[in-house]
Design a protein around this nucleic acid. Structure first.
Lengths: 185, 185
DNA sequence: ACCTGAACACCGTTCAAGT
DNA sequence: ACCTGAACACCGTTCAAGT
């Protein structure tokens, strides 16, 4: 005789994500998730294989949100303007919730096929814009990697308080972005 | 009557670092360290305040090594050549031991004064080169931040297998580097 | 001064038993 | 079909006791 489910995969992921966003990945304990879901920790194994699977689901969700934000917040007509607004949106996404941002690209989970797919999905908006900008075919990939590397490195350092020498961080971002965007003008 | 020390802070850090380099931060357990040091886990607290203090010492050691490598492997006469060789050395340092690289800049430990100091120390070589290159005073800081952000982001993505679309990763690195170095030519 | 065993609270995970 | 309590191995950490 089936016991009615007290929770669901969707619920669990939402709870887990809230924990990660609020306090980082270490806060994602099965005890904390179970308590908020109104069940006992062992019951989580009826919904997910293990803790790593829950964290993976959170990461994928974040990557999907990132993709949506990048598309939604891209403005302008000129290619460089559009990419600049996308870069600004990327940075805003990271700054708005540092723990959430750090959850993605964490570890080398890129070997997992589902994570892989979600990463490509979230990188697509930039790729699309560069192609649309009329960049030479052979140059699109290295240029998009340059851009993503800069964005990822910059926001990681920013949210990690790695920019310590004072100065204007807005200016630093604008400088790096401008140097790269020069390739589109 | 004093018990002779079986180990030392230096020993412990070396053991901890070997564990981190071999298998990542999670492998740095007090049990594993104590076993290799020939003592019991509680005895570690006579040498370090807690696990975090051991990890911090490892991070600082890695940052000092990075500084040394950057200075030692910088070649050439022209400013752009020197910075390019330094960037290549940076990338080699990360690729040679991904877990070691990931240990630095991890979390937002930049608030800790000793980590702060070690980070600045390891960033100094690049800063020095940019100044030496005759960059305008006001431009040195944003330019060095652009460079570090690109390097950090790029090597993190590379060692995390984030570059998934095939293509030549060497070319991508050269492209990004060249775009930034154009500012020095 | 340094090391130890015993203990504590927590963690992820397994599993037989409940409904 | 889903949930549970009990159990296990592990983790970091504390502390009184040893030398």
């Amino acid at each position: 005789m089936p016991t009615p489910a007290k929770t669901s995969r969707t619920d669990i992921v939402a709870i887990a994500r809230a924990l990660v966003e609020a306090s980082g990945p270490d806060a994602l304990t099965l005890g904390a998730v179970a308590e908020r879901a109104g069940i006992r920790p062992p019951s989580l194994y009826k919904h997910f294989a293990d803790r790593a699977a829950i964290l993976k689901a959170v990461e994928i969700g974040v990557l999907h949100d990132l993709e949506q934000v990048l598309r939604r917040e891209t403005r302008g007509t000129a290619a460089a303007d559009r990419v600049a607004s996308m870069a600004a949106a990327y940075r805003r996404f990271a700054r708005a919730a540092p723990h959430r941002y750090r959850a993605i690209y964490s570890g080398n989970a890129f070997n997992d096929p589902e994570i892989r797919e979600a990463c490509l999905f979230s990188a697509q908006p930039l790729f699309d814009e560069l192609q649309r900008a009329g960049i030479a075919e052979a140059r699109t990939l290295p240029l998009s990697r340059t851009m993503v590397a800069f964005l990822h490195g910059f926001v990681l350092m920013e949210i990690g308080n790695a920019f310590q020498l004072g100065g204007d961080i807005e200016e630093a971002f604008a400088t790096g972005l401008e140097i790269i965007l020069r390739e589109l003008r």
